[in-house]
Each structure stands twice: as structure tokens, then as C-alpha cells.
Design a protein around this nucleic acid. Sequence first.
DNA 1: AAGAAAATGTGGTCTGACCACCTAAAGACG
DNA 2: CGTCTTTAGGTGGTCAGACCACATTTTCTT
Lengths: 212, 212
Amino acid sequence: MIAVVGQNESSTKVYIEIVKQLRMIIEKDGLKPGDKIPSERELSERLNAGRSSVREALRALELLGLIETRRGEGTFIRDFRGNQLVQLLSTFILQDQKAVRDVIETKYLVEMDCLRLAVLKRDKNDFQRLKAWVNEHNVEDNDFFIRIADLADNHLIYRIWQILVDYYQATNREEFKTNKEDYLELVEFLEQGDIDRVLIKYRRLRNLSYES
Amino acid sequence: MIAVVGQNESSTKVYIEIVKQLRMIIEKDGLKPGDKIPSERELSERLNAGRSSVREALRALELLGLIETRRGEGTFIRDFRGNQLVQLLSTFILQDQKAVRDVIETKYLVEMDCLRLAVLKRDKNDFQRLKAWVNEHNVEDNDFFIRIADLADNHLIYRIWQILVDYYQATNREEFKTNKEDYLELVEFLEQGDIDRVLIKYRRLRNLSYES
DNA sequence: AAGAAAATGTGGTCTGACCACCTAAAGACG
DNA sequence: CGTCTTTAGGTGGTCAGACCACATTTTCTT
């Protein structure tokens, strides 16, 4: 019983390997969001793999929102957003009440973190611009916090927040009414750098007593 | 030019449909983590789809860590952990220094959030147990904060933290030495419910000046 | 009864074949 | 010449069938 010298690459699944290779191709060719990546058939040849294996890799990346496929056109790189992912994960995860509570709680925590970061990293000018924006627009809660998350200058936590928002909306909660004055006041405190007042105001905005 | 009545199911990709069907099968059969799901060939028949389409769905779920496949045995449900996901995403995301800084910053923020939640939700007894554990073991930083995240009683933020730890370790940073006394002191403040001192102590533990 | 061998079931992978769709080149027509 | 139509080629979407590698179960031998 002679040990067979496996030609398979040390048990690493092909589609995982393809994902890595693909990442290298993207880097080497300097491809950016919106650009087209090689076709499935071409990748299949270049990487010495079956087209089905290439597809498994692409489907996985698609589910993660890293690429986008358009039938008849090709496959394109995409800026990471957890679209399909969240939608599918939510049906797997948001099953009990506890999970829903966790989503809400976490969303609030992250939003408060963003407020803290904004105060730390930004100056009066940034907040005055925000104030002007609030005055000029019909403020939606998400739009407002998108700007807060942006001011936090941390792409990762911004992504996390986006995902939480998606989860949050997947729970189909009733919207609560928003007053422009509340947001203005919040920005006012941000401008003053008074993080304590900011958070107090935030809790009031969310109708939180003391929790979280 | 007569409109063709497509037999394709309203443009929804088959593999996405399979994921949903699979979710229903799991629910209907009451399958739990560790249980085996039907084989690829059986799913292919039951769902009237090609095996390759079934595989695309399974690979996507595998990448998300929702299932685990064992060659020669079958496919099994798994408790959600972002294993492969993180590993792959990290190679896509952790490309520049800014991204790395964001990971670290976010990890710290989440850890502080967990500390806040722990103070809010827990009582002296819980922290005394934690104190005993610290005394009895050679405390690793991650193990300590696993317990903190657990005390925060929020599964979602716990998952987020896990992912952040994975990212963090993917950056290959040098470990910093941990003193048992520091953790004890931290728990002491937790027990007293003094969140301000807790956070100050935490920052010192992480060698943070004021940031975050 | 114990061990060895065969049969069975499962995931892993490749190949080839269609289909539906999009785009661009080639042709037809005014 | 310019515009419209037609055509051809490329691309993703899907399926069917065929192997392989591996693990378990069954059957057969000793």
C-alpha cells in the first residue's frame, strides 16, 4: 500500500485557492470598483481550474458583495457593501426576540461610538457644515447618521453600522418621528465638544432611559 | 415580437433560491448546529436544480460559516462564526495602513462598549466570579475579554468582537504583556459599577492616551 | 469472531453542452 | 452617407454526466 503522492494542493479547496488568486489578479492589474474582471472561462483557463470551481468562488464573493455579475456582460468589482449577505444572514440569524434586541442595542452602541469619534477627530468647521446640511434638508435619521459615521473617519465601523442598519430594517420596526430641532441640538453639542451632552441628547432621541 | 414567457423563475438566481429553500428545510426539519443536511445530490433532486447550482449555494453558506462540509461524510450545520469569511475578507480589506488602524480602533471601541454593557447588566456576583477566574488562571487578553463580551449579554456584539479579533490577529501585531493585577483592578472597578474608572483603566491597559 | 475486502454514499472537480442576454460588428436600405 | 436591422461573438446561468478521493457500512473470507 504505497502512499499516493496527491497532486491535490494540500487539501486546500480549489475555490478557496481561486479566491486568493483572484485577489492577486485584481491587485496586480490594479483593478478598482466598477472594473471588469476576466470572464469565467478565461479564469478557468488561466488558473487551470474547471469553470464550475471558478463559479463557486465567484458566487461566494458575490454573496459577500465584493463583486457583481451582469449576465451577458461580465463580472465587475464592487465596493464592499453587505447587501445579499445581510439579507440572507438575517433570515438565518434574526430568529428570536433576543437577537432583535441585540441588533437594536448594538446599533445604538455603534452610533454612540461614532459620535464619540466625531467629537475626538473633528473640529467646529465640520460640525458647522453638518448643521448647515441639517438646516437645508429634510433630515432622515439614517442620512443624518451616515454623516456622523462619516465624520467618525473609520471605514470599518461605518460598514458595521451599515450592516446593522440593514439588519435593523429587516426587523420591520415602526419608524419614529424625527424633529429637525433635535438633530440641530445634537450637532450643537457636537460643535461644543461636549460629549456628555451629546450622548444624553442621543439617548433622548432614541427614547432610551438609561440603558445602553 | 411576442413577449417570451420565461420559464426562469423571475430572474432570481437559482442558487439564491436554493439558499432560501435550504433555510426552510432546516427550519421545517428542526435541524440544529452539528446536524447533517441532505446530500448535494438529494437536494439537487428535491429542489429540481442541478448539482452545480446546489453547490454554489452551499459554497456561499460555507464561506459565511453557516455550514461545514466534510468530504466523504456530508454537510453539517454549524454555529455561525466568521472563519473563512474573515480570512478571505481580510485579504481584500486590510490593504492599507488606514484599514489596519480602523480595525484596532474599532476593536477598542467595541471592547469599551462591552465593558459599559457589563456594568449596566451585571451585578457584583458576576464580577466576583470573574475576579476569581482571573486569580485562578494565567490570563490571556483575549480570554479575559471573551468573558467581558459574554457578560455584555449581546450575542451580536460578541460576534462582531470575535471578527475584529480575527482581523486584529491577521495584522500580526506584537503582543503586549499582560499583568494579572491590571485585570484584577479593572474587574474591581467593574464590581463597583464605576464605569468612568473602568474606561480609564482600560485605556491605560491598551496604552491609549486619550484617543478613542 | 476478527480481520480484510468490496460496496455504497458523500463531497470535490472537470468537461461539455445548452440557454438567455448583451454588445458590437457587419450588412441592408433609405 | 447615415441610419437601421441583422448577425455573430462573448458572457453569465444552468444542467447532466463523469470521474476521483475519502469515509462508512456491509459483506466475505479466514
